[in-house]
Amino acid sequence: MTAPATAPIPIATPGTTPAIELRDVTRSFPGPPEVQALKGVSVTVADGEYVSIIGPSGSGKSTMLNILGLLDRPTVGEYRLNGVLTSALEEDERAAVRARQLGFVFQAFHLMSRRSVLENVLLPMLYNGTPRAERESRAREALHRVGLDHRIGFLPGTLSGGERQRVAVARAVASRPRVLLADEPTGNLDQTTSAEIMALFEELHADGLTLVVITHDGAVARRASRRIRLADGRVSEAG
């Protein structure tokens, strides 16, 4: 299905408040030459939906993820996260939203090499106000869920790539975000490990977590319940 670039993409579960709603979002980077990484993008992701954003290098995927993750602001347009207009938020409020509503999984894992697996998973809960008494149990629960109970005291450097990414997933979900954003989560993994991570994402989705996975890998994108294709900063296809 192809949708006009400016038209909102139909949400998967009509009737609920969308988790993510981009409306005519443009992101320009001043030049010279000025670059428009996103050009009037409108996307809606329903609460609990599993969406992949696919596109070639330079299509605007990462810019879109940065905006979705409140790491960047649209130059023009509106972005509502769980119904809240994010452009009205101050810097510290955006940090608070990132801490309490969003989880991130990066291609490069971004684990702290001198902290143990458990400490890495505990880190987001330091900033998001998780009750102190629950932090460690939540971290252990998340690590159990990704199958890394036996690695909690290890340093990330001693783990395989797949295990590191699973630690990153555990870190992202331990603080119980409403939306998980993954940027090329299998980009540094082999096929078998990629499949494990994607299976993990499907489990999280089955539990009701909203997932947005950015990838250039068609196989990874097809695991999502809906795919949005970006090309040259515009939504070229959604379905």
């Binding site: 809240v84 938020l89 409020e93 608070a96």
Partner: peptide
Amino acid sequence: RRREAAAVPGVPPVHPADRFRFAD
């Protein structure tokens, strides 16, 4: 204003004891 920033739209408030403190 800084205190009130803890009450973010759409985000449930955090109990003061669980905020990022000097000890953290």
